[in-house]
Amino acid sequence: MIKFLDLKALNHRFETEFKNEFEIFLRSGTYILGEHVTFFEKEFANYCGTKYCIGVSSGLDALQLIFEAYKVLGILKKGDEVIVPANTYIASVLAISNAGLKPVLVEPDIETFNINPNEVLKAITSKTKAILGVHLYGQLYNVEALETISKQHNLLLIEDAAQAHGAKFVDGRKAGNLSHASAFSFYPTKNLGALGDAGAITTNDFELSEVIFKLRNYGRITTYENNLKGFNCRLDELQATFLRIKLKYLDKDNKKRKAVATYYQEHINSKSIVLPAFQDLNQHVFHLFVIRSNRRNELKDYLYKNGIETLIHYPIPIHKQLAYKDISNCVLPLTEQIHIEVLSLPLNTALTKNQISNIVSVINMF
């Protein structure tokens, strides 16, 4: 069976470095917010091209802390509307509602799966204060369009870059440096994945970064002096240690992902399948390779019977989740179509050439 993702195989090549650094970590006696968190924050900010990086406990916490910090700064307030793509993972929307803000779901571009700027324009009201753009599956959203809209309507532009580590816009800026603030996840399956939960926020805004640094650690400025009502959302020192190792290989790994995606794109020719749309390889790091088929479930079963594991990202749209039953009456036909048609193929750096070729051959016989 070709697994969709074998994390053990994926991390095997880092094992010696992991063990060596773990020994140093263990002997250090500093296990919370030590030097590795500080070093990683500097290194990841430098990688993304931003002035500041704040390491936090997860991608969801990263997003929520951004919204909470803007509330502290008086830029957002409870009940403000945030426009967000309807076909994203639920974490994007949870961050908005958990912060006491109102998510406004809009349809994506069915070709790229990313938020449709025209739908964003239609959704703007007097209560709209921010756009949460998601670089879904690893492809940058329409950067130029969203930047223009946010400036013209005086809106915050926030990136959910949880799946887009290293994606680069045409002007050289990377994901994490395309907005007022950006949230990353380092969940183990991500292109830059930890060995547990982890996340980060990048920004060029000093005031915002200072508030987030406080909020992630109980809102405190000294051990027992708290200026804000904060959270416990710190990046774990050990995870920072592992992330520092893997960051060195990220660009090389993304290059491998692009090579696999290009092979799929050039060799999959089944008429039952719609391949993902992208024009610029630099703007896509292929966290996922997502195809569409109106025979999705049949295709998934066929592939499994032929030794290929696939996944569905995501089977139930947010407005159809029980957690968001209050917006279940949203009319989002494209989003609903996407959720019943998408299927993610195996794509990772542990795949062999024979496995990749086999996946294509089996698909083309469907």
Rank of each mutant, 00 (worst) to 15 (best):
Q283P: 00
A261E: 08
N116E: 05
Y304K: 15
E309V: 05
L105Q: 00
Y263K: 15
N358M: 13
P346Y: 01
L238F: 07
G193S: 09
S97F: 09
T128F: 08
F25N: 04
I32K: 15
N254T: 07
T349N: 12
E298F: 10
G133L: 00
A323V: 12
S92G: 10
H313E: 10
G100E: 11
E119T: 04
G193T: 03
T112I: 07
T30P: 02
G230H: 06
D197N: 14
N116V: 00
D253G: 08
F366R: 07
A194C: 15
V260L: 14
L73Q: 07
A194L: 12
E207Q: 14
F25M: 11
D80E: 07
A183T: 03
N177M: 13
A350M: 12
E266S: 15
T88V: 11
L250K: 00
D280C: 06
K214T: 02
G74D: 03
A167C: 05
S357A: 15
M1P: 14
S97H: 02
S209W: 01
E21R: 12
K51M: 11
I312L: 04
P333D: 01
Q265R: 14
K77L: 03
I356D: 13
K229N: 15
A123R: 01
D109E: 10
T349C: 13
L10E: 08
S28L: 04
L215N: 03
I340H: 11
S361V: 12
T125F: 09
N98V: 06
K102E: 11
L76I: 06
E107W: 01
Y47V: 01
Y31M: 06
L343F: 11
I66M: 07
A323L: 13
S272H: 13
R295Q: 12
I312E: 10
H36L: 03
F169G: 00
V285C: 06
T189W: 12
Y47R: 02
L322K: 12
K252C: 08
D80L: 05
A240M: 04
Q163L: 10
L33G: 00
P85F: 03
S270C: 14
Q265L: 15
F40M: 06
